[in-house]
Design a protein around this nucleic acid. Structure first.
Lengths: 173, 173, 173, 173
DNA sequence: AATGAATGAGAGTTCATTCAT
DNA sequence: TATGAATGAACTCTCATTCAT
């Protein structure tokens, strides 16, 4: 699964063959089918793992008792941390979200998570006294998505730390 | 090329066969190879077309003699307009930017365009008297990217007009 | 289709690979899929051909205006002729009738044909004044089936001509 | 072996995997290879068992001291009994007899048995005073084969009891 | 005696590409 | 210019068989 994630994320799902995965992982092609019924099955297993590992990280600290500013900062830091540590998971998920056939599977689980984050943002901005908390939430949410997109495609060449630091300074201090 | 773009964008490059394109376009498989040396070649031709049609739209009005605020609004409107009218182009480009092997080709042309926009933003924010014009430019640029990402994957369910309106109101009025 | 029939009939459907057929027929594996969507499709095409060519031969002369004895002889001769000239078709069909999954397809077309023959026999025996025409029909029908079975599996070593001659002499003279 | 016979007869040899047999029989795949060197070996063992159990049944009562008519009836009854009680064995054997590569193995043992029956029939018909005892033997033998074929492929829908009863009445009473 | 993880050859199938027409 | 029959490499997947335990 690790090798698969690695290859799926860097070369794309359809661009990665089972043979390739098996050879890279140092096992036989046949063995893969002892653990996963199909290539799609393997993908699903990886995505499920990604959800449990990453999506949870993003939402786990949201109900802490801090000030709205601190909460917002925590979420941003959390997104940043997840993005850096689980970049392959997110790269894969984002890439798949462009494929019509994979969408159905992703939508089911991905959408609620996204909406939960937007709701958190909205609540926080409301507590911070903003006039249009929902719109502000969408702005910041979009900002984080855009930041992620750039980091995922460009990688370390994208000055993610400086930007996120500026974002925090802008909204939380 | 039109049919190819349509299919590549909705079904994915690897998920679309030459036969499929030919049949949809109403020509023979063989004829395609009179105009394009390979499937990759066809993709490159489409991407080049996409650049000429879309990327240009984004940058064309930047040297107009308006106020910085008006210039910023114009760029945002331009991005919005392009996103809506050339959504297939951008969907394809963005989806491909996740694949390591396609990156080389894209990077070459895509990066300068992106940097040009960031520079425009930076100049504008400097003229508007912002303290950290570069960082501010990255924020707004990221915001537009995030907005685009959401629109490309979610589609009309994403309230792109309301959000972009709010963005303009926030920065330009 | 000719090569496929040959191989399916002698080696069995599951025992014959597409590669084998293609190589024997002197074409590429890929070409097979220009004409047949799948191996099953190929089999169906062959079986349909078999029906049109053979089953028809068996029933075509049944409404001739001869005496019952002559009619019976004609049917027997027809079966014999078909068996000898289309032995591969019948070998394949009979072999398949043992496979649970092929049965559905075969039953649909095969059963009516069989019943038609039994009915012809019954009518003939009734006209010939037999006491139990239906039972007699089943006997002769079974006899022909058994004769076919032996001829299909043993081949020329089975004295089919002598036996059918005796059968005719027994019932028709 | 029991499970294998069951599966081979109903689903076909090539359609039945070792895994399937092992799972159905409740043992491990590996264990099967402690008792049989290969899948072919397993098939041979089953076929040998089939011969010992079934073919013997058919011939065992032939040298009884009854009248020819009674002997003939006994053989027919025996075939009928065997067919009904060992239908899976015969189904498998008959299905295999269509495959060129299995033939060699089957021919060796099957042919003598068949010829023995024909000889018995011939002797009986000679004792009964028939003019062409050998031909008559072939007719009745073929009749039994045809009856078996129909019963094996159609199953209970084939009126085997009525037909065999009529056959007995025809020749033995 | 018994297991099942592991292998690899080979199955059916797809598809980018070529080329005679 | 235009076709589509033909190819062959590569794909996903299956399964008989082996072997360390």
């Amino acid at each position: 699964m690790e090798t698969s994630l690695e290859l799926f994320a860097t070369r794309g799902f359809h661009n990665t063959s089972i043979s390739q995965i098996a050879k890279t992982a140092g096992v036989s092609k046949g063995l893969m089918y002892n653990y996963f019924n199909s290539k799609d099955d393997l993908l699903k297993a990886i995505l499920l793992g990604a959800y449990e590992e990453s999506a949870e990280m993003i939402t786990k600290k949201l109900d802490s008792p801090d000030t709205p500013q601190e909460q917002l900062e925590q979420i941003i830091q959390q997104v940043l941390f997840t993005l850096k540590n689980k970049s392959k998971h997110w790269k894969l998920i984002t890439a798949l979200s462009f494929q019509e056939d994979a969408k159905h599977f992703l939508r089911k689980d991905l959408k609620p998570k996204q909406e939960a984050i937007i709701q958190q943002f909205t609540r926080i901005f409301k507590e911070m006294g903003y006039d249009n908390p929902l719109e502000e939430a969408y702005l910041v949410g979009g900002m984080l998505d855009g930041m992620s997109l750039n980091y995922m495609t460009i990688g370390e060449a994208y000055p993610i730390d400086k930007i996120s630091q500026f974002l925090i300074q802008r909204y939380c201090l």
